[in-house]
């Protein structure tokens, strides 16, 4: 398993929901934009968390990529959100 997480900075608008779902892997800068701190995913649990974060991102900026670099966010829907995404 060589999944990686990436944040598309052209889409990120600083909702910071990824940081709620997967705080270990995402740092927020001073404006709230996410920056990937640990990109390589090495456990099933982290993969689940990453996919949850990807599904929760309102801009589709948070992506999980497979071994060949293609986007593979999984089909999982986000668990019920405790925060409401800003519109």
């Amino acid at each position: 398993m060589t999944a990686q997480i990436r944040i598309d900075p052209t889409l990120c608008r600083g909702h910071a929901i990824c940081a709620l779902f997967f705080s270990d892997a995402v740092d927020l800068d001073q404006w709230g934009f996410g920056k990937v701190a640990v990109s390589v995913i090495d456990s099933e649990r982290d993969l689940r968390r990453a996919r949850r974060a990807a599904a929760a991102c309102p801009n589709g900026a948070f992506v999980v990529t497979g071994a060949d670099g293609s986007v593979d966010n999984g089909a999982r829907r986000p668990r019920r959100l405790r925060v409401r995404a800003a519109r």
């Binding site: 990436r6 598309d8 052209t10 889409l11 060949d68 670099g69 293609s70 986007v71």
Partner: peptide, 12 residues
């Protein structure tokens, strides 16, 4: 004419 965020090289 804006740069792209890519996870795959343009050449691929």
């Amino acid at each position: 004419a804006r740069p792209l965020f890519t996870t795959i090289p343009l050449a691929a």
